[in-house]
Design a binder for these strands. Sequence first.
DNA 1: GATAAAAATGTAAACGTATAGGTTTTTATT
DNA 2: AATAAAAACCTATACGTTTACATTTTTATC
Lengths: 331, 331
Amino acid sequence: MSSLNDVARRAGVSIATVSRVINKGSNVNEETRAKVLKAIKELKYQPSRVAKRLRSKSTSSNLIGLLIPDIQNPFYVDVLRGVEDVAYENNYAIIMCNFAQDEKKEKMYLDILQQESIDGLIAAPAHEKDSNVIKLLNDGLPIVCVDRGLTGKDVDVVVVNNRDGAYVAVDHLIKSGYKRIAYISGQKQIPSSKYREMGYRDAIEDNGMQVDVELIKYGDSKHGSGVELCEELLSGANPPDAIFTGNNLITLGALETIHKRELRIPEDVAIVGFDDMMWSISLNPPLSAVRQPAYEIGKRACELLIQRISDPKRSPIQMTLNTKLILRKSC
Amino acid sequence: MSSLNDVARRAGVSIATVSRVINKGSNVNEETRAKVLKAIKELKYQPSRVAKRLRSKSTSSNLIGLLIPDIQNPFYVDVLRGVEDVAYENNYAIIMCNFAQDEKKEKMYLDILQQESIDGLIAAPAHEKDSNVIKLLNDGLPIVCVDRGLTGKDVDVVVVNNRDGAYVAVDHLIKSGYKRIAYISGQKQIPSSKYREMGYRDAIEDNGMQVDVELIKYGDSKHGSGVELCEELLSGANPPDAIFTGNNLITLGALETIHKRELRIPEDVAIVGFDDMMWSISLNPPLSAVRQPAYEIGKRACELLIQRISDPKRSPIQMTLNTKLILRKSC
DNA sequence: GATAAAAATGTAAACGTATAGGTTTTTATT
DNA sequence: AATAAAAACCTATACGTTTACATTTTTATC
């Protein structure tokens, strides 16, 4: 890889001139500009983003971090796509870090991101008191949180109305005549789980029914816990006639268990899940689900981040997007 | 962020000494080492990976690139996880680039990766003559190809036996009594599509049947083309009684069409897809599929890359992993 | 205790860029 | 033609490391 210096020598000018040609372009003679451009082409010169980043923290290095708890979850893949599209348009590159719900891994990745001098970070923190993310925030790094905020911290956040999304789903279940509705929750410590539980509870109580804590199971937001907790539920003394699942991976796991037991959906158990997927219609049966605008979450988050990078003082925005209940055949 | 200089000043030593403490640790007095370590702790010093990379191309900067054609495809998500796990163990960070089957985007990302002075690249090239990837290869960047190679280039490759995987699936379809078996292919120009078609054709001919070109449809490896091409197939004059789909997204699209037409699987049309998914069992009906060891592909690729980075002369390896036909209810 | 060898530490240059500030050349003004 | 102003260009420095080499201090040897 050739450097500014090589180009300068070849064009017979100083490196400052070359730099000017490349960047602003002001105050440079047409003739020399042509010479420089020619040299750049001949040498296939590409500026080093590394040197650029080292040189000027002020000048944007056009690199942002994306911290994600679980890339196997299609929800985050859609968020990623949203982030990426906006980043691409604005000439930002992304370092994507999947910490797989492992806080040790998370810390390692956040350290790396800081060491890479990223301009900003989009993060779905491990939980609301995530000290790893808070540390970076306190260090002054521009951050936008996604899917969950940080308690006591005034930070840009893009979330979904989890409570209402859950409420509408469970309310629909009740109105459809289901009596014993279970909830399989994701990790208890993440806010979205809590709010979804809140919606679940409110819907039940608002309909004059009583919450049965036996019907609430807490897992880890992954496929396996969907399988197991659904099994627990169904093998109990007084099994549910409907299940509300806390995210898409859990839904898939629960479906697996239900099918293994050769139960009919929705006759034996109905199911409605949080998170829709492109292929939910091809599941057995076509799945009813609460759709989150995942792509848009990513898009908005990245827009907010780019704004914040260019204006670190702007006061934080908390953006709440709405969910939509998609009814198909599973309830 | 504090620098080596800050630490040196605080500890009352030179930056060279600090550097020595951090890196090799040879030739440094225990007492001063303690002083330095203390200063590092107090200042929460973190080395700048950027400066490190700039300084020494020789010394590994511990950053690799991962170039992926479509992150919406769960296959690549699994590859990514495999890559990541190995990278994590070996202290490498990953810049993940999803070019979404857009060669312009691909070029932009590859430029960025080069400008970031990555140590190496794991790439699923757009096709076998992918000039963007070839350029980097010619520039001497350590590269491992995944899922497809580069014609005429001697490069590390990790692939799957696509031809055999397809053969076994189609052969099974024939042995099960299906007479008119269609193939919905992914992008024609990518090798895996070609080899899968080869397996499809061979299986048909080896069973004394004849290939009907009307039953082969070429798409773009995405969900939408699965939907459309399946529709074409089923609305034809002489529709197939079984479909072999070229990848998981196509499979999902085809399923959608079949369900929309309210056809029974496998009675009206059977289907077997390339690529298994964790939740294939929950599809309607549980899907029979050719399973690729996607996670292992990623893992192996990353291992090969790390080897190559440390030994650029080692002669290239072409690694072929095997697929497995998973039989469920769709055929 | 003088000298040599080894250990400990320091100095300075380099990686590739951006840019402040200085110098030279061109253009405009009278 | 002398001068001022503007344009074009260059020099040198800084960003935070690593490392070759130089220098100083300690230890060993006689």
